[in-house]
Design a protein around this nucleic acid. Structure first.
Lengths: 301, 301
DNA sequence: TTGCTTATATAGAAATAATCGATAGATCTG
DNA sequence: CAGATCTATCGATTATTTCTATATAAGCAA
């Protein structure tokens, strides 16, 4: 059931003639004969009755013709859809983001992007930085927006925005330790921390190193896998935490949480767009990267 | 967009691997690479991103895969439908019949055939013998049932049944010429005759020759192209006619028409099944021929 | 890091298939 | 019946497919 053969067959069917089919396909008549004969051999049935110099399709020929039309239609559809894809910003885009970007950065940016390119569907997965990077690396996601850098060959990390982290505690807890210096406070209080693999933890760890500490030197009361759960634990007074300012903005303003003054060593971390260097980026993906680079608005403080 | 190439592409897509695709198709890995490369060249897009040793389809690859599935499905559908056709009595059968058989022979036979083979659809065209034979010859009809023999190479005429013709006149008209001998009557009365090409006319002509006459020696008052119209003309007294007994049976019985006694030279004609010697006969057509040969019941007199 | 293994890509040779021109055989046309 | 036109067949030529061998790259384990 080779394409060339089916093409020859189809033309014979349409012209009721082997030689006309040959002329139509710029092939010799013997070639057409051979192709049709091969098909007949392969299917074990006659496709045309050769009645003198006229050619009449058999029932089997009619059936084959009907399906041959479908075959060519499928090919043409495939070609035209691929052609369309090349220049248009369309399709489903599997993207991923770690907790903070997914909750505080992406919603607005995605809404704007959707207004600009309504033919693109974004499918957003949420996980911690490490999980998202692994999924990008494994080609399950086309793009990721994460809060930390992960050394991994073949991945490109585009810095897009900076974020401020704060050290927060429940008001009551803070009262208990208020007499201590910042350094002693941190060594004494129980901590609510994010899991390994979290961008927030990574950034917090970097800052701790800068002030001469590390996670291993702290009392980790509880490890949580999510910024929301972390907030709840801090609010309940289980311990102190380092987290993105935006996640605790309203609690700081209403006084239920205290943002501990950490002096001049501000805690900052970078967000990155991450994608696989060798994967072909659709126009849609390219546009999304540009959109995020230009339209991710810093979180208001 | 060759079948082999699309097959190779499809298997790569399904295995996410060129070498596994090769093993699945009993081809070498370089062959698969070449096929996919050729497709990519032809379409002008990349179908897979080769990321190290892992293979990830691009959007274009996904689109092509979807349509490739349709292509293979069409091929398989065509093959299975053709296979089914080989042994089953199914399908549409274009048949034709001249006036008398279509009206007086076929209805009962077709009803019986339908009971036996409900998957066969009969599409009956009606014309005079010559028209039907021409359509069979031109492959517009698979089978014909006609009331006369037409010399034509490549056609097979199977005799199936004999029919009796009668010479009829309106009662009033007959009274007018009753004093004449049969021979003189025929030379004197106006005639209602069928057109050239009619099996009835052909049979009538043969009989006329036998009794030493011919159509050219008769007064042809009107030529009609249909047995029903002929009957109407005779009934209105326009002239005598030679026609199939069945078409005038009730009129003879109720006395409105007179069947003229033609002595011992009875007018008979043969019905034939006619088909193209070289056309492939479907099982359905073969069964229909057999059915007609065995189940066409003579018209009761 | 350094091999070891497993992928895909590439090049050249061998096998297979497609195609053609010439021609035979059949059939329609005038 | 002769000439034109059609399909089938044959042998030769040209393209394509496919292979083996090898290069190149990437993951994996020590």
């Amino acid at each position: 059931m080779d394409t060339r053969k089916i093409e020859a067959f189809t033309k014979v069917f349409e012209h009721n003639s082997f030689s006309k089919a040959g002329r139509a396909l710029f092939l010799s008549q013997p070639t057409i004969s051979a192709h049709v004969a091969a098909l007949e051999e392969e299917l074990g049935v006659q496709l045309f009755d050769r009645i003198g110099r006229t050619v009449v399709p058999t029932k089997a020929g009619e059936i084959l013709y009907h399906h041959a039309k479908n075959i060519f239609e499928s090919s043409e559809l495939a070609i035209s859809e691929i052609r369309k894809l090349e220049n248009r910003v369309v399709g489903k885009l599997d993207i991923g983001a770690s907790t903070i970007p997914a909750n505080y950065l992406l919603p607005k940016a995605m809404a704007e992007f959707y207004m600009k390119y309504p033919e693109v569907t974004l499918d957003l997965s949420i996980g911690d930085t490490e999980e998202i990077v692994t999924m990008v690396k494994g080609n399950f996601l086309m793009l990721g927006l994460v809060g930390g850098l992960v050394t991994s060959q073949g991945l490109i990390f585009l810095p897009v925005l900076k974020d401020s982290l704060v050290l927060v505690m429940a008001h009551d807890l803070y009262q208990k330790y208020a007499y201590l210096s910042l350094h002693d406070l941190m060594l004494t209080v129980p901590w609510v921390v994010r899991e390994e693999g979290s961008g927030t933890r990574q950034a917090a760890g970097t800052w701790l190193n800068k002030v001469g500490l590390s996670f291993s030197g702290l009392r980790e009361a509880i490890i949580v896998r999510n910024a929301g759960v972390l907030l709840e634990c801090v609010r309940l007074g289980m311990g102190a935490a380092i987290t993105s300012y935006v996640t605790v903005r309203s609690e700081i303003k209403d006084g239920s949480l205290v943002s501990v003054d950490i002096g001049h060593n501000s805690i900052e971390r970078q967000f990155y767009i991450v994608y696989n260097k060798k994967r072909t980026l659709l126009p849609a993906a390219q546009k999304l990267i540009k959109h995020l680079q230009h339209n991710l608005t810093p979180i208001k403080i």
